[in-house]
Design a protein around this nucleic acid. Structure first.
Length: 922
DNA sequence: CACCTCCGT
DNA sequence: AGCTAACGGAGGTGT
């Protein structure tokens, strides 16, 4: 095989790494997340491609040669965040210290440098280009392949001529420039032909081969408007093609191969990695690139305990488990209390996770296709009832007919691949019977599926996705592959082996952080409860929904006509904020109240101010309210009514919010309208299902403020709740200095806003906006409040100090949230982290308590033998459907369990209401 | 896909 | 000097 030359598009990859990975800073505040991600990727590439030579290319400035040509094009590049900008030179420095030339030129982009390499290098070499920029696919030829990071930094697709053709309708790589000529590329300031998107462009180029040929045959093109566009914009198309073309004749590049040969690492690289706090990284690269003599001797001599030891360890185990975790945790976590990470998972090198397509596992899984085969396997597994079983199941079908479609099972070193309906049915039953402890990745789906099959899984003692979420709820993804990347520092297939390896790391992290109890006693047991709620679903009265929707459609049509008339434009779209902005502020000349990033703001607040200046404003306000209700809650709900059950089955997400709350999707049933009259009509569509008579709702009263009273131990607040006062009125009385019985409605309203503000981590500005008063006035309210509620003030300070010193805050049940920006030099980021430090313990504890309550309610209902069932959770409210005969018993049970879910230093109050629909259960 | 707007706790 | 109340999901427009 020919020797390989690897060319790295440094600019695009660092960019990718920056957005794909969590931010990371050194103790000194140097941002290193993108450099870290880049190096991680580089390491992987060295492993997988095994190049003999490596070069990296960078853009010198963001606006360069080709884009300059069209610098006056209306679009502008988004500004590069400073945290990212500072990492480019850093990365080049690291690469150069490793002996990898990092090239940048004044007049050429990284693309051009790469293109020139690709074309000018000795034709006997194999060339690999790695990039996050699709443009570079045009460089593919017989010996040049492009590794394109499809998403994030780990999902890499290797393109050669064939795979390019497969993705681009049989086009040759170079025809990409023709495609760009027509469709343009906003991110590169390439205009293309307006109105021609990827689909049309692909069709045209597939047919005509090039932009020039499309223009030559423009008369044959079907579609009048398309033809017109092409004719009117032919110069622009040709220019766009030119802009998209990578220049491959960059002069003055050093093409001597020796310059790019990989060399052993020197001490300076080790120093640099240490400065960046990339512990362990140096040794990983060292294993591939070798070490120069100055480093080897120091390792052998054991002068540097920090790096020498891991070098030996990872050399022995042949993997880098734990390093990744160390690195990420180093920024956000409490560095003092963490123990050393590397003893996490033994990661067998099974050859998985190659960048090049499906890897072959070391040991093939045994395929199980018949029930009898599974029975044999089950007997083997059950022979040791303490043996841990890891499994991953794929499900198919819809509620109430969910079923498993395939399952992978790992027990010890035996792995099975179960398929076929009989074998899977047997497997499903086994989940409910086997004594073995089991672990998986998304157990809610397992429970849902098993419940549909009439069985209840037993001894599911691990859900790794959930565990990873508790370890750090702020991550952007909890897909198994991403979790594996995080904990193991490797690209891994999301399979049982990965699951088992990651599990060790996750379990250890939870132990270290004292999260195991929250995990085992609350979050895991909650899963089947959520699964039952989802399967139960809730009935929306479809007839009324249709009627309401028709009614609404009529009103909307009339308002739309009116709006068009008032705007003086029959093409006016009242749904378009952009068009509205033009009409209001340019055509009608109304004063601009507020601007958004991209234009005029037309939100409610703005329109309210403009009310009376033009009749259109009022029309739009009315239109907006109805349009929202119509599209989101009427038309939006319709397709989500299950055709079999006739009910709406939302999905409760347990690993989304940073504070520990649940979220609800498809549809979101946690934001059904309630405030306006029309809104309540929508809420009233939700009714008890067949066999039930009432919707019963129980909600916590002021739970967040009660938690604030508890955690702050503020004497006024404690007293207020212990005496069951109206807190907002009491606050008004304190802040405005009037006796409780003289508090006016308005004063109470303002005090209420202040109380909310406190919970959110108040600012005078925010409160002023909320109250519609001056900032000064708002500031005085706050000062007044804090001088009366001293304990609250101390609490706020305490949380900020705590966050600053340990890097995270906790809820009462120990749930953590990391605040990496708490010491950031950027005022806005720091302030945000400070407000979060105040809010999260409150909001998160409320979420904890609600979860406890759900477990208690679920258990108590089952024990009681009542047929009432929980359908929905809306943060501080549970909604159940109940039979008339069980109404009072259920209400009593519900209230008791909710109020006693957790012991605070003030009483927890929960109020029950019931009705024939959700609106009247209030 | 980013942005705006708006629904809830 | 400038920007600021916490946590979410969804629909629509326009690139």
């Amino acid at each position: 095989m020919a020797d390989k030359f690897l060319i790295i598009d440094g600019s695009s990859l660092i960019h990718r790494a920056f957005f794909a990975l969590p931010p990371l800073t050194t103790r000194k505040g140097q941002h290193t997340g993108a450099v870290y991600g880049f190096l991680r990727m580089f390491h992987k590439l060295l492993q997988d491609v095994k190049p003999r030579w490596v070069a990296a290319a960078f853009d010198k400035s963001r606006i360069t040669f080709r884009t300059k040509l069209y610098a006056d094009y209306k679009g502008q590049r988004k500004p590069t965040p400073p945290e990212l900008k500072e990492q480019f030179p850093l990365c080049m420095e690291v690469l150069r210290s490793m002996g990898v030339p990092a090239l940048e030129l004044d007049d050429y982009e990284a693309d051009d440098i790469i293109g020139t390499f690709a074309k000018k290098l000795d034709p006997g070499l194999e060339v690999f280009i790695v990039t996050g920029d699709r443009d570079e696919l045009q460089l593919i030829d017989d010996r040049t392949r492009v590794m394109y990071t499809k998403k994030g930094i780990s999902d890499i697709k290797l393109y050669d001529k064939e795979s390019f053709a497969a993705d681009y309708e049989g086009l040759a790589p170079l025809q990409l420039i023709d495609l760009k000529g027509l469709m343009g590329d906003t991110s590169d300031n390439i205009p293309g032909v307006p109105g021609v998107g990827p689909k049309t462009a692909l069709k045209l180029i597939a047919e005509y081969g090039s932009v020039e040929n499309v223009i030559a045959h423009v008369e044959e093109v079907k579609g009048k408007s398309l033809k017109e566009k092409l004719v009117n914009n032919k110069e622009q198309a040709l220019l766009s093609k030119e802009l998209a073309t990578i220049y491959t004749e960059v002069p003055g590049l050093d093409l001597t191969l020796d310059t790019y040969a990989l060399k052993p690492l020197e001490g300076k690289t080790r120093q640099m990695m240490a400065d960046l706090e990339f512990r362990g990284f140096f040794n990983q690269f060292g294993q591939i690139m070798g070490l120069a003599s100055d480093v080897e001797s120091s390792v052998a001599g054991g002068t540097s305990a920090e790096s020498a030891e891991p070098a030996i360890k990872s050399a022995v185990s042949g993997n880098a488990a734990g390093n990744m975790e160390d690195l990420f945790v180093a920024t956000a976590d409490n560095r003092n209390t963490r123990n050393a990470g590397p003893e996490t998972a033994p990661v067998p090198d099974d050859g998985m996770g190659s960048l090049f397509g499906a890897p072959v596992p070391a040991v093939r899984a045994k395929e199980i296709g018949f029930a009898s085969q599974w029975q044999e396997v089950a007997a083997e597994i059950d022979a040791d009832p303490s043996a841990m079983v890891w499994f991953m199941a794929e499900t198919a079908g819809e509620i109430p007919h969910l079923r498993f479609e395939a399952a992978r099972v790992l027990c010890g070193d035996r792995e099975y691949l179960v398929s076929g309906s009989e074998a899977l049915a047997s497997f499903t039953g086994w989940l409910a019977e086997a004594p073995n402890p089991k672990g998986t990745a998304d157990s809610k789906e397992v429970f849902r599926t098993c419940f549909c099959q009439g069985v209840e899984p037993q001894n599911i003692i691990e859900d790794i996705v959930l565990g990873a979420y508790l370890d750090d709820p702020g991550r952007s993804s909890y897909a198994l592959a991403d979790i594996a990347w995080h904990y193991l520092g490797q690209d891994r297939e999301p399979d049982c082996h990965t699951l088992a390896c990651v599990a060790e790391a996750v379990k250890q992290a939870l132990l270290d952080k004292e999260l195991t109890q929250l995990y085992k006693e609350i979050e895991l047991p909650l899963i089947p409860v959520l699964a039952r709620m989802e399967l139960a679903g809730v009935v929306a009265d479809e007839k009324k929904l249709d009627a309401l929707s028709r009614d609404m459609a009529g009103k909307l049509a009339r308002l739309e006509d009116l709006a068009k008339e008032q705007a003086g434009d029959p093409g006016f779209n009242p749904n378009s904020p952009k068009q509205l902005g033009v009409v209001l502020f340019e055509k009608l000349g109304l004063p601009v109240v507020k601007k958004t990033k991209t234009g005029y703001s037309t939100d409610v607040k703005v329109l309210e101010e403009l009310r009376g200046k033009h009749p259109l404003v009022d029309t739009i306000l009315q239109y907006r309210v109805l349009a929202k209700l119509q599209s989101t809650y009427l038309e939006g709900l319709k397709p989500l009514i299950n055709r079999t059950t006739g009910r709406i089955h939302t999905h409760f997400q347990q690993t989304v919010t940073v504070t520990g709350r649940l979220s609800s999707t498809d549809p979101n049933l946690q934001n059904i309208p309630t405030r306006t009259e029309t809104g309540r009509e929508i809420r009233a569509l939700f009714i008890p299902g067949k066999g039930y008579d009432w919707l019963l709702s129980c909600d916590y009263s002021q739970i967040e403020l009660r938690i604030l009273a508890h955690v702050s131990q503020d004497s006024l607040m404690l007293e207020s709740f212990r005496e069951n006062q109206d807190v907002h009125a009491r606050t008004a009385s304190e802040v405005f200095g009037v006796p409780l019985d003289l508090v006016s409605h308005e004063m109470r309203g303002r005090a209420k806003a202040v109380n909310f503000g406190i919970v959110y981590g108040i600012s005078d500005f925010g409160l002023a906006v909320q109250l519609g008063c001056s900032r000064k006035e708002a500031g005085e309210f706050i000062d007044n409040y804090l001088s009366r509620y001293k304990g609250v003030k101390e609490y706020m300070e305490r949380m900020k100090t705590l966050a600053r010193s340990q890097g995270y805050v906790m809820t009462l049940l120990g749930r953590r949230r990391y605040l990496p920006d708490i010491n950031n030099r950027n005022f806005n980021l720091r302030s945000f982290a400070e407000r979060t430090a105040i809010n999260t313990p409150i909001q998160g504890t409320a979420a904890d308590i609600m979860k406890l309550a759900m477990l208690r309610v679920d258990a108590a209902l089952r024990k009681s033998g009542l047929s009432s069932r929980v359908l929905l959770q809306v943060h501080d409210e549970l909604v159940l459907e109940v039979k008339e005969a069980e109404r009072e018993a259920t209400a009593a049970l519900l209230q008791t369990e909710m109020q006693n879910a957790f012991k605070l230093d003030v009483p927890l109050l929960a109020e029950v209401n019931y009705g024939k629909d959700w609106a009247s259960a209030k």
